[in-house]
Design a protein around this nucleic acid. Sequence first.
DNA 1: GATGAATGAGGCTTCATTCAT
DNA 2: GATGAATGAAGCCTCATTCAT
Lengths: 220, 220, 220, 220
Amino acid sequence: MNVTAGNATSARARSREATRNRLLSSARTLFSSRGLHRVTSHDIAREAGVAAGTFYLHFKDKESLFRELVYDAIEQLRGRLQRALSQSETGAAAVRAHAEALVSFAEEHRELVRIVFARDHGAAEVETDVLDYLATVGAEVLKHRMMVGTFRPTLDPAVASQALTGMFARVVAWWIEDPTRASREAIVETLVQIQLAGTTQDTQAVSQAKDPGTSGRRSR
Amino acid sequence: MNVTAGNATSARARSREATRNRLLSSARTLFSSRGLHRVTSHDIAREAGVAAGTFYLHFKDKESLFRELVYDAIEQLRGRLQRALSQSETGAAAVRAHAEALVSFAEEHRELVRIVFARDHGAAEVETDVLDYLATVGAEVLKHRMMVGTFRPTLDPAVASQALTGMFARVVAWWIEDPTRASREAIVETLVQIQLAGTTQDTQAVSQAKDPGTSGRRSR
Amino acid sequence: MNVTAGNATSARARSREATRNRLLSSARTLFSSRGLHRVTSHDIAREAGVAAGTFYLHFKDKESLFRELVYDAIEQLRGRLQRALSQSETGAAAVRAHAEALVSFAEEHRELVRIVFARDHGAAEVETDVLDYLATVGAEVLKHRMMVGTFRPTLDPAVASQALTGMFARVVAWWIEDPTRASREAIVETLVQIQLAGTTQDTQAVSQAKDPGTSGRRSR
Amino acid sequence: MNVTAGNATSARARSREATRNRLLSSARTLFSSRGLHRVTSHDIAREAGVAAGTFYLHFKDKESLFRELVYDAIEQLRGRLQRALSQSETGAAAVRAHAEALVSFAEEHRELVRIVFARDHGAAEVETDVLDYLATVGAEVLKHRMMVGTFRPTLDPAVASQALTGMFARVVAWWIEDPTRASREAIVETLVQIQLAGTTQDTQAVSQAKDPGTSGRRSR
DNA sequence: GATGAATGAGGCTTCATTCAT
DNA sequence: GATGAATGAAGCCTCATTCAT
């Protein structure tokens, strides 16, 4: 009977896990299309095919579920980005790999991107701000690159990291909303070039800063 | 009697306007600190020192007031930025003037910035998304600069505009949240340099691209 | 100056009366199409072209105005009906004249009919119920006719009066809502015949009671 | 386990149904005494001994509940009346049976009668007007009787049906408000006689229409 | 007398959460 | 563990009425 109980328990555990996952998945879909505060716990339960009360057997409250979804997503993303960076040899390669990884992640996880980078996700309740977190992580990377010499030393790493994070989030959120807005290549290329050489090219600057421009081209 | 009537009307109108402004001002403060959906119409009325119903004499609903606040703010900002651009002679000067204008606006209108660039402003209901609007405006500017030759032609203007908008919004929102996080100069300088020369500097690039960095400094 | 004041006062009085009438008239129109509780005092004032507060200079409250409208209307109607009855020589003629007067009144005062006989006029607040009043008046008439011998003595006058009042009110309200529903003649004829001979005609009754039907026609 | 689940479901369903019925019953009482728009959803919930929100688990809104109450009532009434008619052999018997059924229904369902036939039930929102519906049903009956020869062919069935409906509704509503106003028999007799022979009896008419009058008497 | 801005009680409805089964 | 009916606080908005000008 111990054995039986053991099996039963584990069957239960598995079933429980399945319910939990259905809730997470339903929430992902719903939050993605309607945002945190326009989705009710009933909506999520209904979509998951469970009773309203079941929700609270798995999550403390709606916030909790949301936070879990978001944190999982950014951890995944962070991992992907870090791997891209660490596997690159040169700075330029790292920048490109990073952009590629970001765009790939967005393509594979449209819903998560819409949730995490949406402007109305009710982030106030998710205490640790998502972009702040990503930017903080990013700042560490920049500091490292600065030491290594691949980051312009006249920039403030904290500020630059916020800048880049805002840029990534916005571009990806905008694109994922309607992927026909730009080709995947245009997204990657634009992100890469801005990092490698900025957006500017004027008669004066051309001669002085031609190399970044050239490298921007080369990297295509 | 005409005069009396005229005065009476005026006085009424002035008083009405005053109430309306008190409501707007209270809303600005409250939205800035708590976000759209954590502020009730009663909160706003109370803060403004008027009765609950008075709110609805001046605004159709909470959304309306919010939208008015946001739209006014972005129009002001847009005007400031455009003026900065049009009064600059060179591309580099324009980039700097733009960044300066942005930061000044943020300093002068902390509350508006917190409302407009906050991620949880309930944008879903504010139909035209704020960043989209700004980015669209920005894209026009970039197209113009591309024709004039001060914008890197290998970039996609639509994508780049989203990128820059996201960057500006994020940096400014982050900084305004706590201005001790970076000096005003660091903010401006970082925004300018990223645009003029990107963030990167690698061993190869160092020698060749040192000037943008230098020019970044010089241009101070 | 007394004289002047006198003139001024009377000019004022006239103007005041005009305002009051505009309010009454607007209310009549609005109540007629929307019913008491779907018309606000602001609606009435706006329609009358006066300020919201002006309403309360002329009427204690919305109820008051409504009551005045209704009572005026039923007094008018009562007068018309009584005149029709008193000017008729025979009982049958009286019945017909009464029906004619009712229908004419309805044609001339569609709005009042819609207000008075509508089923949702919020009569609860108009303490003395309109139909009760009319029925009570009607009962007096029936008692009189009973004494004179033109009213079937086996009927209870109070009940019959309610019955007739309900019949009149309903037919008129239904017809006035859309006068193409039946011809004026059909309305009058049906009301007359029901009173003179009922609605029934069975195999037995046919031969014996054909005349009332015929007389109904003849009396045209 | 099936059984348990079955019972559980049943118990739930039964309890739910009980709550729903308590709400319906409370609403019936309240609407009956105060009319639709003087009863709030909170009133109904309180009277039913449930929380305010519970109301909305069972009914979309106050209107919905009201409509359900009214429609159920008129369907019941219609059934009763139709049965009375179809079980009668002669026209006169049908008229009497119909009146009896109407009065019995009123006695048994005072509250429903007060709601359905009240003049201020907010019918505007109950789209299909109750009396219109009943009159329309009635018109079909009259057309049938006309073909069978028990309905005076010179009457317009649509108009007559409105007339009778108004008569029935008014008499019943008036009586039920205070049953001491007339005896049950007086109500029935008056309704019957008016249909069989009208209200009139004048020196001329007497000889010509005596039989309907007589049958009116006989039936007492 | 007229004005119209302001009042604030009151009604409607939603939804996060609990709890008996 | 799952269920789903019930809870009730909380927000939104309307509108009859008042009152200073």
